[in-house]
Design a protein around this nucleic acid. Structure first.
Length: 906
RNA sequence: GGGCGGUUAGCUCAGCUGGUCAGAGCGCCUCGCUUACACCGAGGAAGUCACAGGUUCGAACCCUGUACCGCCCACCA
């Protein structure tokens, strides 16, 4: 057995342990060190791949901790547990980072050009990749690194091409000219999800348009219609003015023409119910190329849709002097010119919602573009069916409502991005405009429509939205579209763990694509984690400077403490605050466990040889404390199993903390210490007690391993193992729930209460902690054997010696009076009297006070219990078990009150 | 405009299907003999479970409403 160092230094423990795991090849379900049982179903977690250019933050650490917890548990249960790690190329986010770096070097995307830029990106991610992976290992991820995948590797590329081709053939991917969310800052379109609705106070301008005099064909200086707009620059793209058909104010004007200022275009006044007669002036200018509502209106009325903004959001192609101006410069100029013409009627402050780009924060401009879309309607139907039928479960359940709501009125997904870093869309166009889509790595041989040779075809310059490749993750990582072993064995996956903030971005897309492409839900359970916040509840962000670096935490307190702290507060879907206090709590716990194990390892009886194989303690030689400990471990194991089954990971840590600290250490070890120190104890009994400590500690180390893998692995190595055990705890078997011993739990529990009662009395009577107190105790006959067996421990732990035992309460009372003992302890059935030292004056008064307090309290409880039982409807309507319990409680209280009164009367 | 969460001891939070459920950790106060642990041990104080109604024999827990705090979704110019 290796000796444990006296001090717990996580840093020394963790690195070495991880190396041992790697060397033993235990992470892969089919690794050389795996102990998986192939007859059990596999268990798969596909990790949300972190962005390759990022660095690990606490959120990642928590994800990893939770995923690793599930995987380690499954592995110990004997499942082929596959934790498949990965990295995401994070197209737009990565370009953002690289562009920033290039900017400092005086270079830019444009100056490098597509090929050199991509080359530069590949060099960049080659370095960040290693950083990301090293960080995951520090957290202790028992991921199968041999299966590491990357959203830009060749196999992902094949999956992307294949998926797209299939969607295209199924008419679920289509190319069309439509309004897209254009981000001028990023120079690309973005999906609806990437547009952040931001409430802002803008201005609503009222502008007068002049009607055309039918006689002259010229604008009438006096006959006008006033429209309201928040974006005057879009006037240049107006192709109609709309009014509500039933608005009497305007019915006469419908079908008349108005002249759009500056562009001098004459456009019709149309009637459309989309217009709210009560808003503004009741007349709306229609700009089909730059507004979603207007575009729809334009289609209904067959209006032209001139685009008036270029990619960089400057005014373009209007033939006016505003061409070339930035959109906001143009806005100012147009307002000034309208003012000069006398056609600017009003300007009022206006609360509105502006769409901004999630990445650049620039104001999004809707623009008409010919791009690729995914038809989400049919896909969303199937995704909804998956959750409604229960084939996929979302945790916490309340997110199913959000899920339903979003999928219910989902819009088609624009997947074209005018970026460079990502998967190029596998679509080729021939000069005649025919479209050829192919998943072939080398592209098409010829136009699929007219047969023109490949040399005349041009590939779409755009790339896919990064979430398109992420959406294929559970499939692509397992080898889809090829029919390989991993895909057959591990798909569909078991649990999808991720943050609730990407439920739409990622989870919904994986579900839609997975169902469409494989016909099967990609996972059974979606476990949504909450966000990690700082101690003040603020979201962690670099700009606020409140970001905690997990590596710093690990250096200081250890990965085990970090994991424990993160898991301790984790409830699915709920955010948690994280700070030094929680970490300290966790580290103290690790330290406690370390020292407890050190004690056990060091307490090995001399009769047990070092390196002896594990023996099951002989039941005949067990003491009550031993039986109690074994029973409590059984209870804890069952409770932990239940918590794990319910994904209540915070509950798991709570249970184990409590069991290990407050039961095993506080009582189990203390009772055992006294027993082992007894010179009269026979060898077999001593060995049985030590083997019990070992057995129970072994159980707790196993139960705790998924949460704190490093320290448990290190400590486990210091304990004797069973013949059936493997070398390493990580691949050892999960404990079975043993049998409870109700008698031991009840009896030892009563005596623990007695010790606590005496300690309590000592403190409240202000008796010196160091003094040994002569004590008389009444113990009911049934408790006798347990009491006698534990007598030395009770004496020592309560510091009560000599400890005389009386067989009846009356005898205790008599002896108390005779011996002038004063401090009374009532603990359940057990009763005790303690002799105060004469030198401590005032003890009697203090004791009286304490007894009175106890009495008042007991009487209160009794009154409550009686009131309840006096209630006829309670007795008749409540379940029998509850009523019986109440009766028993009443009897107990009656007895207690009587005894307390008795004491006080003397 | 819709929807969802939260409100429990000074602080951070548990409390699963209503019946010792009023708890834990930290902090605070008192004490500390005892070689596993001072990253410790023993003891203690501390809460009208946001508020108002209701259902029930019984409510922190279920229902209705209110008030704050937070989040998500949303194409009214």
């Amino acid at each position: 057995m290796p000796d444990l160092p006296k001090a717990y230094t996580p840093h020394d423990v963790e690195g070495a342990i991880y190396e041992r795991w790697l060397a033993a090849d235990v992470f892969a379900p089919d690794g050389a060190g795996s102990t998986a049982d192939p007859s059990l179903p596999p268990f798969t977690i596909v990790q949300p791949p972190p962005n390759i250019t990022g660095s690990l933050h606490l959120g990642h650490a928590q994800r990893t901790a939770v995923e690793d917890l599930m995987i380690r548990h499954a592995r110990m249960l004997g499942h082929r547990a596959l934790f498949l790690p990965g990295l995401d190329h994070a197209s737009i986010a990565a370009q953002f980072v690289l562009d920033g770096i290039l900017d400092k070097e005086g270079e830019s995307r444009q100056s490098l050009g597509r090929e050199r830029y991509l080359e530069r990106m590949r060099e960049f991610v080659a370095t960040t990749r290693e950083v990301m992976l090293a960080q995951q290992r520090r957290v202790g991820a028992s991921a199968d690194w041999g299966r590491l995948r990357y959203t830009m590797d060749d196999r992902s590329a094949k999956a992307v091409r294949t998926a797209f081709e299939r969607l295209y053939r199924a008419d679920l991917a289509y190319r069309t000219k439509a309004l897209v969310n254009w981000c001028p800052g990023c120079r690309t379109s973005v999906s609806d999800l990437e547009v952040i609705s931001t409430p802002e106070t803008g201005t609503l301008w009222s502008v007068r348009y002049h009607l055309i005099d039918p006689a002259s064909g010229q604008p009438d200086p006096d006959e006008t219609i006033t429209v309201a707009t928040t974006r005057p620059e879009t006037i240049l793209g107006d192709t109609a003015v709309a009014v509500h058909p039933d608005n009497p104010r305007y019915t006469a004007l419908v079908a008349r023409m108005v002249r759009i200022p500056f562009v001098d275009r004459d456009v019709p006044i149309i009637a459309d119910t989309i217009v709210d007669p009560a808003f503004g002036t009741g007349a709306v200018k229609i700009t089909p190329a730059h507004d979603y509502d207007d575009h729809a209106t334009g289609l209904r009325h067959d209006l032209p849709a001139p685009t008036v903004l270029a990619d960089d959001a400057t005014v373009a192609d209007t033939g006016t002097r505003y061409d070339g101006m930035d959109r906001y410069v143009a806005r100012t100029a147009i307002l000034a010119d309208l003012e000069a013409r006398g056609d600017l009627v009003a300007a009022t402050p206006h609360e509105m919602v502006v769409g901004r780009c999630q990445r650049s924060n620039d104001v999004i401009e809707p623009r008409l573009k010919t791009q690729w879309f995914i038809r989400t309607g049919p896909l969303a139907e199937r995704a909804l069916d998956a959750t409604r039928s229960g084939r996929t479960r979302i945790l916490p359940e309340r997110f199913e409502k959000t899920w339903e709501h979003w999928l219910d009125d989902i819009r088609d997904w624009n997947v074209s991005r005018q970026l460079w870093w990502g998967h190029r869309i596998p679509a080729w166009y021939c000069p005649d405009g025919h479209v050829t889509v192919t998943s072939a790595e080398t592209g098409p041989d010829a136009c699929s429509v007219c047969g023109r040779p490949a040399t005349e075809l041009r590939q779409d310059p755009d790339i896919f939205d990064t979430w398109f490749s992420s959406g294929l993750w559970p499939l692509s990582t397992l080898g889809w579209p090829d029919d390989i072993d991993d895909y057959r064995t591990y798909y569909p996956t078991s649990v999808m763990e991720t943050g609730y903030d990407i439920i739409f971005f990622w989870v919904a897309r994986m579900m839609m694509l997975g169902l469409e492409l494989t016909g099967t839900e990609p996972f059974h359970t979606v476990y949504l984690s909450g966000l990690i916040r700082d101690p003040l509840g603020q979201k962690m962000s670099k700009t606020k400077g409140n970001v905690v670096d997990p590596l710093g935490v690990i250096d200081e307190s250890g990965a085990d403490a970090l994991r424990f702290a993160l898991i301790h507060g984790a409830t699915p879907g709920n955010d948690q605050r994280f700070g030094p206090a929680k970490l300290e709590h966790a580290r103290n716990f690790a330290n406690k466990l370390w020292n407890a194990t050190r004690y056990v390892a060091g307490a090995r009886p001399v009769t047990v040889p070092d390196g002896a194989g594990r023996r099951i303690p002989d039941a005949r030689h067990l003491g009550p404390g031993d039986r109690w400990l074994v029973s409590r471990a059984a209870a804890t194991t069952a409770a932990v199993d239940a918590a794990l089954a319910g994904f209540a990971f915070g509950e798991v840590t709570r249970l184990l903390y409590e069991a290990i600290w407050n039961e095993y250490c506080d009582w189990g070890l203390e009772l055992a210490k006294v027993r082992l120190a007894d010179p009269n104890l026979d060898v077999a009994a001593g060995e049985a007690t030590w083997w019990t400590l070992t057995e129970v500690l072994d159980t707790y180390l196993r139960l705790l391993h998924p949460v704190m893998p490093f320290v448990t692995e290190a400590l486990w190595a210091a304990l004797p193992h069973r013949a059936s055990d493997p070398e390493l705890l990580i691949v050892a078997r999960w404990p079975g729930a043993g049998e409870r011993d109700a008698a031991a739990e009840r009896d030892v529990g009563a005596l623990i209460d007695l010790v606590t009662g005496i300690r309590n009395a000592r403190a409240s009577a202000k008796l010196p902690a160091a003094d040994w107190l002569e004590t008389l105790v009444y113990v009911p006959l049934a408790l006798g054997p347990t009491f006698e067996a534990l007598r030395p421990a009770i004496e020592r732990l309560a510091r009560a010696r000599p400890l005389h035992r009386e067989l009846t309460p009356e005898a205790l009372e008599a002896a108390t009076r005779q011996g002038d003992l004063a401090v009374i302890v009532v603990a359940g059935d057990v009763e005790a009297a303690v002799r105060p030292i004469a030198a401590h004056a005032g003890v009697e008064a203090l004791e009286r006070e304490r007894l009175e307090r106890d009495l008042t309290e007991a009487e209160g409880w009794l009154a409550a219990a009686r009131e309840r039982l006096a209630n006829e409807s309670f007795v008749s309507r409540a379940p029998a078990a509850v009523v019986d319990g109440a009766r028993a409680r009443e009897a107990e209280l009656v007895d207690q009150v009587a005894r307390l009164r008795d004491r006080l009367e003397r």
